[in-house]
């Protein structure tokens, strides 16, 4: 397909891709709306629920403490946004704006941390978290991703692009080091903060491997681990599992579609370029 292919064919292909990429979500949603008496497979199954019900969504909360899982995920994800934005910005600011001995070494260490996959060190991260007494705690879930090298890097790039004169003027006005950072520099890089924040939130909200390792007690699960638990342990009712997945994904998709214009602009500016 090229830009100048026939327009109709392009739209047909777009619709086919939409069916392939949205259809699975839709089928899950339709399954979640079908009542217990209605078949969800076999010869009598229909596309649309004959008698749509929200009962399965209520049942999710009976089988797993889904509200607590949502709260746990929300706490970890929110904390991750705060730590990645704040600590990433502080470190990025120092690397971009201050000259000091050892800056090159610190920067090299940040870059190098990007090529160490978490999966390589996860066993030993677990040992560290265990020795800190943080197994089965949300703080333990948060810490390994609390400030990623990428967050530091994105913030450093943002501060580098900022004209120095603004801060120098503030310095002459007697503003201290911290207030130059907090009141002058930080508000000027809101766009990059938003990119770091959104990706930190999504990463923490969607993460599965690390919470699966660090959380043992089903009361402390985050939503992803809890959903896996829901599908495995307690119920074979696909309608309830489907409702659980919809609870997890619909709010995210709603926010995403509401903000998609901003999102794609942010991604474009945020340096995810080839």
């Amino acid at each position: 397909m090229t830009r100048h292919g026939p327009v109709a064919l392009r739209y047909v292909l777009l619709l086919v891709m939409t069916v392939l990429l949205v259809g699975p979500f839709l089928w899950q949603l339709l399954t979640s709306l079908k009542g217990t008496g209605e078949p969800i497979y076999g010869p009598d199954v229909t596309w649309l629920p004959r008698d749509p019900t929200l009962g399965n969504f209520g049942k999710v909360a009976e089988v797993i403490p889904v509200w607590r899982y949502i709260a746990n995920s929300a706490m970890v994800a929110t904390a991750s946004v705060v730590t990645n934005c704040l600590l990433g910005a502080m470190a990025g600011y120092a690397l971009a704006r201050m000259r000091f001995r050892g800056r090159g070494a610190v920067f090299a260490a940040v870059l190098a941390s990007l090529v160490v996959p978490f999966e390589v060190i996860m066993v030993n991260v677990f040992l560290t978290v265990r020795s800190l007494g943080l197994v089965d705690t949300l703080l333990g879930v948060l810490l390994p991703g609390a400030v990623s090298g990428l967050s530091i890097l994105v913030m450093r790039t943002a501060f580098l692009a900022l004209p120095k004169e603004v801060e120098e003027a503030a310095a002459i006005d007697g503003a201290g080091e911290w207030s130059r950072f907090w009141r002058v520099a930080l508000p000027s890089v809101r766009g990059s903060l938003a990119v770091v924040g959104v990706f930190s939130f999504l990463f923490a909200w969607d993460d599965f491997l690390w919470p699966l390792i660090v959380l043992k007690n089903p009361d402390n699960f985050t939503l992803t681990v809890g959903l896996q638990y829901l599908s495995g342990t307690f119920t074979n009712d696909q309608r309830v599992v489907a409702a659980g997945t919809m609870i997890a994904v619909l709010p995210l998709l709603a926010v995403f579609f509401a903000l998609q214009r901003l999102f794609f602009r942010g991604v474009g500016e945020g340096g995810v370029k080839g």
Binding site: W27, V249, L252, L253, F256, Q260
Partner: peptide
């Protein structure tokens, strides 16, 4: 309408792998 299609095609990225995995397990 292409902007909307872009967003639609991106939606599986937003979802967690657990959600996507469970959806496909059922399919």
């Amino acid at each position: 309408g292409l902007g909307a299609f872009r967003a639609v095609f991106y939606s599986p990225v937003i979802a967690s792998m657990v959600v996507v995995g469970l959806i496909w397990s059922w399919l």
